[in-house]
Amino acid sequence: MQRRQATLKEKLSEHYRKRDFKAKKQTASTAGVVFFLSMLVTVVLEGLVVLLPRYYTTDDGSMASGYRFAQFLCIWLFIETSVNWYNTYYDVANRVTKEMKATHYPATSETPPGWKNCPTCLLDAPPRSHHCSLCNYCILKRDHHCFVTGSCVGYHNQRTFVVFCLYTLISTAWAAFLQFCYLNEELPISTYWASFYFPLAGLWQYLVGAVSFINFFILIHLCCTLVSLGLVVFFLFWQLVIIARGQTSFEAWKQISIYRRRAVLNNFRDVFGELQNFLLLLVVPLRLPMPADGIKWVIEPKEEKGH
């Protein structure tokens, strides 16, 4: 007796019955990457096509001086932000491997002093490294998992993350300024159009045909830009604080300060390298060599009182 073939409806029903609809940890990381890339592309296109032409158009219809420079600046910020984003995203050098222990401790099979054995990776990890459940790797000097880049910020990409935050800060601040100027010219905030700047009120005014789609779109874009600006200000400030203190986010949370150098400048050198390298990194998004390997760390003795 032949077995009856399941219908398409039955196959779909069985598929969704077995499907796990619980939110995955990686979903937040994917959503963050999609949000950033969408914002990056739409902001630069909006700036070049809509915002800059409107801002630099004079009363007689000609372009004011500085328009070409503003276009160049917009493209340059886009390149710097996107390349530093990629340099942060590409965190392969941060991943702990078996070869790291073999290089520094070739004659022992036991966990070296100060190291720890990761039960997930099944290898020994150097000091300051931690396992990331999202990346599924142990990360050298792990600071945090960045949902915007979908990768971990650690020893080899912390400085590019800081530069990425800096350029994102400049870009979002400028974009928010241009977006507000555009909307304020179309719908002055000092008039009865002030209610439009509340998103729900703006949505209602768009649905009833009181405002155009482009105005409503730029309003939503402005809200997203302001949220991004607030987040990047926080992360940039926090990174500079913990770098100055010679800590990672985990160490600051656990109040671990044994890796802090006495001179604040040395704490910055541990992350950025020499000053000339950092200044070059600010202008050209290169992958410069780090000052050390991120495996061995010196614990400086505490200064006794009175000395």
Rank of each mutant, 00 (worst) to 15 (best):
M1N: 12
R3F: 06
R4Y: 10
A6Y: 07
S13D: 09
Y16L: 13
R17M: 12
K18M: 10
K24D: 08
S29C: 12
G32V: 08
L37G: 04
S38M: 11
M39H: 13
V41Q: 00
L45W: 08
V49K: 11
D60M: 01
D60P: 02
G61W: 07
S62R: 08
M63E: 10
Y67H: 14
F69H: 02
Q71F: 03
Q71H: 09
Q71L: 14
C74K: 01
W76S: 09
S82T: 14
S82P: 09
N84C: 13
Y86A: 07
Y86I: 12
A93M: 14
R95S: 07
V96H: 02
E99N: 12
E99M: 03
M100Q: 14
M100P: 02
P106N: 15
E110M: 09
T111I: 12
P113L: 08
P113W: 06
G114D: 03
C118I: 01
C118W: 02
C118F: 08
P126N: 00
S129H: 05
H130N: 07
H131D: 09
N136R: 11
Y137A: 05
L140A: 03
D143R: 09
F147D: 05
V148G: 11
V148K: 04
T149M: 04
T149E: 04
C152R: 05
V153R: 04
Q158N: 09
L166Y: 15
T168Q: 09
I170D: 01
Q179T: 04
L187I: 03
L187G: 05
S195D: 11
S195V: 14
Y197E: 00
P199A: 04
L200H: 12
A201P: 00
W204C: 10
Y206S: 07
S212R: 15
F213G: 08
N215F: 04
N215T: 13
F216M: 01
I220V: 14
H221K: 08
C223Y: 09
C224H: 06
F234I: 14
L240G: 01
A244Q: 07
G246R: 01
G246P: 05
T248A: 02
W253F: 15
K254D: 11
I256V: 11
S257Y: 09
I258N: 09
I258Y: 01
R261G: 02
N267L: 06
N267M: 03
G273A: 04
F278A: 11
L279T: 10
L282M: 14
P285F: 12
M290H: 10
I295F: 06
V298D: 06
I299M: 13
G306N: 02
H307T: 15
